[in-house]
Design a protein around this nucleic acid. Sequence first.
DNA 1: TGTACATCAGTGAACGCGCGTTCACTGATGTAC
DNA 2: TGTACATCAGTGAACGCGCGTTCACTGATGTAC
Lengths: 223, 223
Amino acid sequence: MARTDGTGAESPRERYRSQVREEIKAHAWEQIATAGASALSVNAIARRMGLSGPALYRYFAGRDELITELVRDAYRSLADALGAAAAGGADLSGLAHALRGWALADPQRYFLVYGTPVPGYHAPADTTAVADEVMRTLVDACAALAPAGPEAGEAPFATHLLGHRDWAGEQPAPPEVLHRFLVFWTRLHGVLSLELAGHFTGMGFRPELLFEAELESLLAPRF
Amino acid sequence: MARTDGTGAESPRERYRSQVREEIKAHAWEQIATAGASALSVNAIARRMGLSGPALYRYFAGRDELITELVRDAYRSLADALGAAAAGGADLSGLAHALRGWALADPQRYFLVYGTPVPGYHAPADTTAVADEVMRTLVDACAALAPAGPEAGEAPFATHLLGHRDWAGEQPAPPEVLHRFLVFWTRLHGVLSLELAGHFTGMGFRPELLFEAELESLLAPRF
DNA sequence: TGTACATCAGTGAACGCGCGTTCACTGATGTAC
DNA sequence: TGTACATCAGTGAACGCGCGTTCACTGATGTAC
């Protein structure tokens, strides 16, 4: 409300505010990377920034709103990463590598979105909208792929999907396309989550090669 | 030391002790299911049992030891579930269903083993021994399966595994067998973890059918 | 079998700690005339 | 340009809370003669 000229330009104060907000979130991510999301503390962030605890309440209504904002940002950045790849002409394989890059860049961010849920916590409605955006990008890339074998649409699970694809929007893609999307999601998540959780450390093989092998498997006509 | 007759029989006090220990752990699991592992509180458990907080220190050195014990039990019960299935003649498919049953029986227990790691926490050495036991059971079942296609051993990832299979013991299985084991692990974990985390809710399809489809895919000669 | 003693489960008070959050304030920054 | 005023970022004290953990204790249970 500080400006009424309708240009949308930010006043210095508004600029400062959003700058500090970002700085708070940056410290929050740092803390999450160190001790996990459940250990996130408003006071600890303030301390690290050289501020008193209550100061942060100028920028966030409380701890919950801060966490919600972090979840929102995480979803948003994933949607942007995949969207940018798709806009740059990436096919399903390219999106897989974009996903992997995004996950490796910040494992705790990946886990905040796809990791162990906190019982009782429910994501706000607008994050599911972003999740839909991610889904649509991936489904589109699946649809653009060379079609699956002719019998793929008659596989038991594809048949089941035929009657349960409301989640895929108004004009849902064919069941074998949706099936491939789900396989893309679950297979790559399977490798990524175990890799990021450290379950492969000490085994000696290179996880990215397993990722590539799984990617190949789901790109095949018979996935 | 209460008994010296070497029979290994427990004195009433010893019996009582282990009984209370189990009761504490049962309440701990209940609390984990309600609010997640990071919210586990010694005092809250004591309260629920009608005891004072310090009383639990007769049974556990502290919160950390209690959690470690829970992790150990979780691994142990998975190894037992799979071991029992294998002893009962279950093939790889049977083990997959045993795994799924174990996971669904207590999602938070599954997540304690395979979920988001707490940065900094390292599992004690003897849990990795149980993890090895689980692995061996699964690898054996993979080896007992009808062999993969002849070209499976020459796939890029199998070739890589040929040089990196120390984790599979003294006489490691052939690379295509190990590859199938890893695919078993990652694909089924991919479906299970997303399902248990609730990422499929609202989509309407039945997750167990996706699980079955993924299981079929990895049983195929060309997985 | 009865008695003296040792073991040990459980208590209540207390410790220091860090948390989220509120409140009344001060002082700097920006706005209006 | 200078002055009066409003806005608002940040402070310090305080709140109640629950946590993990220690300690000296009491009283019941089990053991030894």
